[in-house]
């Protein structure tokens, strides 16, 4: 394809339009990342805090300490658990929202988005009030004589998984809904007309059509979960082992910027890798 003069001119105009966004990305994302990347090769010094050098020590520490293995595994488990849970629970809801002809549809969509209006810190605080060992639920159950000592609901893996799941649920539902709304359902009718059962039509026609969009939505939510900070901190307790709280602790409590930066890059690399693996697996299955 040859580019004509007008194409080039138009290309120039298009680049000009891209400039503000590009600048923003460079200033807000690339520059800080490069800085952190550089920090991650520096050394921690108890007095100077950070000493310029070039060492792989921070990365080595992560791989050497079993504690951090547990942190990354917990992070992966929580992120997968919460994203899969949100997918399983969100899919039927998104399907219903996409297909309903009810005039209350926009109201329903607002209800789905509503949790986003309550920040997750506020929400987590509410949960503590409700489910904590001194919370309303336990107090009531003890008073009723149904249990003797409070149930351990807060500060468990399940509390973190369910909490994270509920935070990402609106995003999951909205992204699945838009994917499903884009499907031309006459192809499902065509499958039924050709003798497919509802299940076959779903599996052989509908699923392959929504799978790319579902995978993209899942990846987005998975990334959000991998980087969750507030929910694990509040619902898992201060000592809960996940990457985002751990690296925040390094940077702002201990002021170990080099190790915190290394953790940040390990988290990022793991997220990218896991996302790629998941999308690959799904694609391999459908194509």
């Amino acid at each position: 394809m040859a580019l004509s003069a007008t194409d080039l001119k138009r290309g120039g105009a298009a680049s000009a339009l891209l400039l503000p966004a590009t600048l923003l990305v460079v200033v807000a994302l690339v520059a800080p990342m490069l800085t952190l990347l550089r920090y991650s090769f520096n050394a921690y010094d108890p007095i100077m805090l950070m000493r310029e050098t070039f060492t792989l020590e921070n990365y080595a520490r992560f791989f050497a300490e079993p504690y951090y293995h547990e942190v990354i595994l917990t992070t992966l488990a929580v992120a997968f658990g919460a994203s899969f849970g949100a997918l399983l629970l969100g899919f039927p809801l998104a399907y219903f929202l996409a297909r309903t002809k009810s005039r209350y549809k926009s109201l329903l969509v607002v209800l789905v988005v509503f949790p986003l209006l309550v920040g997750n810190v506020v929400r987590a605080a509410g949960w503590i009030a409700l489910f904590g060992s001194q919370g309303i639920l336990n107090v009531t159950l003890i008073k009723l004589g149904l249990i003797e000592s409070p149930l351990e609901i807060m500060y468990t893996d399940w509390a973190v998984i369910i909490g994270t799941l509920s935070v990402v649920m609106p995003f999951m539902v909205l992204s699945l809904q838009s994917v499903i709304e884009n499907v031309d359902f006459s192809v499902v009718d065509a499958a039924l007309n050709l003798g497919a059962s509802r299940f076959q039509a779903f599996r052989l026609v509908f699923l392959p059509l929504v799978m790319p969009g579902v995978t993209a939505g899942f990846a987005l939510i998975f990334i959000l979960c991998m980087n969750a900070y507030a929910t694990p901190y509040l619902l898992g307790g201060p000592g809960y082992k996940m990457m985002a709280p751990a690296l925040y602790e390094q940077i702002s409590v201990i002021s170990n910027w080099p190790f915190g930066s290394a953790l940040a890059f390990i988290l990022m690399a793991t997220t990218v890798l896991a996302t790629l693996v998941v999308t690959r697996v799904v694609r391999g299955k459908t194509v």
Partner: peptide, 20 residues
């Protein structure tokens, strides 16, 4: 009967071919 039990052959207005 359900659509898949009727043995009709339908051509849809937009053809509804399976794109994949």
């Amino acid at each position: 009967l359900a659509p898949n039990k009727r043995n009709t052959g339908m051509v849809f207005q937009n053809y509804a071919l399976f794109p994949h």
